[in-house]
Design a protein around this nucleic acid. Structure first.
Length: 338
DNA sequence: CATCAGGGCCCTG
DNA sequence: CAGGGCCCTGAT
């Protein structure tokens, strides 16, 4: 392999610049029990992005902390009675006390550590059929490690594409606009911030083979950079209001709004929308039939689980993917179509 | 080789 | 409010 080609390849795969971060700080967080560490941090149904890493009892992620970037290692350091997270902060500079406070608040929000699951437990445990599932994953939160913008990027890449293509598009974007960091023996990417996309045209994005999503990403990034979207304010809205606000965004329809909503608001709610591929999977797991009409699925699940329907289906859904990850489920493999 | 659909959404009539 | 068109890819 020629050097020039090697360099080109390294640059293409984003391996060129990798910043090393040192451990600077650590603190603890105390999730409200019950708490399930692994299922809260690791979502088997999500496609793997080189931004986070997981092993049983450990989770690594990168994020922007003010103007700088940092890496986190989160360890399961508690007991059933007193769930505890030990968080280590890796950075290229000293971490201020105010930054620790901000991190605590943000992590508590993103992973919904204060969630009160009592009413959900009551509803879930009288469900004879899925009780084992709810029991197995007891204490799991529906969560997303990143910002609203970051999830929006992912969901736009998912639109009308197979997972493989979504992965390719994300990799191309990370190579072009992300950064690489090494910390705690992990080598991960940090996503770009919306403002970094100011000088990037729709054509530039098309060159990365985003197709028509290039326009969405371009406009969405500008909206976020210009403060058109206020993530913090969205968190305080009720779900209907938040859904309405999100759907106003260019490129955000019912399905993308659904993906964003829980991380945006962390309120438990009924199901409102089932996408075609979810319809197939729900039909299989809840009815053992190939295709049940969406209105029936919605009314049945909402009747059964009430305002916790969103969370209940999350448990059943991730349980399915978890089992699939350990022992391939052929019909599911076919639906996912990597 | 051509055709098609895929974890949607926008725009038009 | 239904339906065509959109970028690209891998499957058929």
């Amino acid at each position: 392999m020629s050097t020039v080609f090697a360099l080109f390849w390294l640059a293409r795969s984003g391996k060129m610049i990798s910043k090393h971060l040192r451990k600077r700080e650590s603190f603890q967080l105390f999730p409200r029990p019950p708490f399930h560490f692994d299922a809260t941090f690791h979502k088997p149904s999500h496609f793997p992005a080189p931004i986070t890493a997981w092993e049983p009892g450990f989770y690594w992620m990168t994020l922007h902390l003010g103007p700088s970037i940092c890496g986190l290692r989160i360890e399961n350091a508690g007991s059933k009675r007193k769930p505890t997270l030990k968080v280590s902060v890796f950075s290229d500079h000293r971490i201020l006390h105010s930054e620790v406070v901000a991190l605590k608040t943000e992590l508590t929000w993103r992973f919904d550590l204060d969630a009160d699951l009592n009413d959900f437990e009551k509803a879930a445990l009288i469900d004879a059929r899925f009780r084992p599932v709810f029991r197995r994953w007891r204490g799991t939160r529906d969560s997303w490690h990143g910002t609203l913008y970051e999830l929006l990027v992912i969901s736009v890449l998912l639109q009308n594409a197979t997972v493989r293509r979504s992965v390719q598009m994300l990799q191309a974007l990370l190579d072009a606009f992300g950064k690489r960091v090494q910390f705690d023996s992990k080598d991960l990417c940090v996503m770009w911030e919306p403002a970094h996309m100011r000088g990037v045209s729709e054509g530039d994005l098309r060159a990365l083979r985003l197709g028509y999503r290039a326009r969405f990403l371009n406009r969405l990034s500008l909206d976020f950079a210009n403060g058109t979207v206020d993530e913090i304010e969205l968190r305080t809205m009720d779900l209907d209001r938040a859904r309405k606000e999100l759907t106003k965004l260019y490129g955000v329809g019912p399905e993308t709004a659904r993906i964003l909503l829980y991380p945006a608001c962390h309120q438990h709610e009924r199901l409102r929308h089932v996408a075609p591929w979810q319809q197939k999977i729900y039909s299989r797991i809840f009815y053992e039939k190939p295709l049940v009409p969406v209105p029936k699925i919605l009314s049945d699940l909402n009747k059964r689980y009430g305002t916790f329907a969103g969370l209940a289906t999350h448990y059943v859904w991730e349980d399915l993917f978890w089992r699939h990850q350990h022992k391939s489920i052929p019909w599911l493999a076919k639906e996912i179509r990597l």
